[in-house]
Write a protein that binds this DNA or RNA. Structure first.
Lengths: 132, 132
DNA sequence: CGGTATCCGCCTCGATACTG
DNA sequence: CAGTATCGAGGCGGATACCG
């Protein structure tokens, strides 16, 4: 077993395939459109709000704020606010967030790496069905 | 075999953090609500449409169909239809789909394993801010 | 069985304006 | 700078009906 997690999945009480399981919600925060990109960015280090906003191309203030709150609540992101003027807030990953980001980035890099294959597959698919 | 990707990410032309990059779309198919669960299920083997529907608790016919089409178009899922009566269609992962599912499951299992920590973090967060 | 077509509510998301 | 408040459009997704 090359698993680094501690137990056999079948023995765990949390099964993401089950509709009611809270792990599904957290998985959605992590893998969601902005969640994945935010965690990916924070893996590189600490960011301030607007730095993050520029890094994650296309995210709105509202969605970034919402995303950060969800990730903070799940214990993946740490928010450090300094009561200065102008205010300064730094976002970093927690140890758990870092573990999650590692795996997420593995996935992201794999996707980026295999995009030529994906693009070829799309062309083939569209060539057959695209006559629509 | 540790890293199976071939190049340094910085050298690749596909950057998921860029709004216009097609890799972002594929990442969303993979990590999306139903995409991730569908790939996770198919990692266990071949499934027929309604088997999959039962396995992925809560998915509707429409969304499963839509999800499978997107994944097939991206070259992650192979669809094998037998022209029998009644019809029989089997879905399996392509080699690329299998690679992707491996990483995705790594993430999913980590999340399931760490849910106690997540749940604690939520309680702490809600205790402080929940007094709303 | 394995889907597609259509309708439609709701909730996400983006744009804008405003606050500390 | 670091957000919150509000609003309106659109698309996600469920329910239903129907086809091969």
């Amino acid at each position: 077993m090359e698993e680094t997690v501690t137990a056999d999945p079948a023995d765990l009480p949390f099964d993401v395939f089950s509709k009611a399981c809270p792990s599904r919600g957290t998985l959605e925060h992590v893998t969601g459109r902005w969640g994945s990109l935010t965690l990916g960015a924070l893996h590189e280090g600490s960011f301030r709000f607007n730095e993050l906003r520029r890094r994650v191309d296309g995210v709105s203030e509202k969605m970034l704020s919402q995303t950060l709150h969800a990730l903070e609540r799940d214990g993946l992101v740490h928010r450090e606010a300094q009561p200065t003027n102008p205010p300064r807030v730094d976002y970093t990953l927690t140890p758990l967030g870092y573990e999650v980001a590692e795996r997420l980035l593995g996935l992201i890099h794999l996707m980026e790496d295999r995009m030529p294959t994906v693009l070829e597959a799309r062309e083939r698919y569209d060539a057959v069905r695209g006559a629509r």
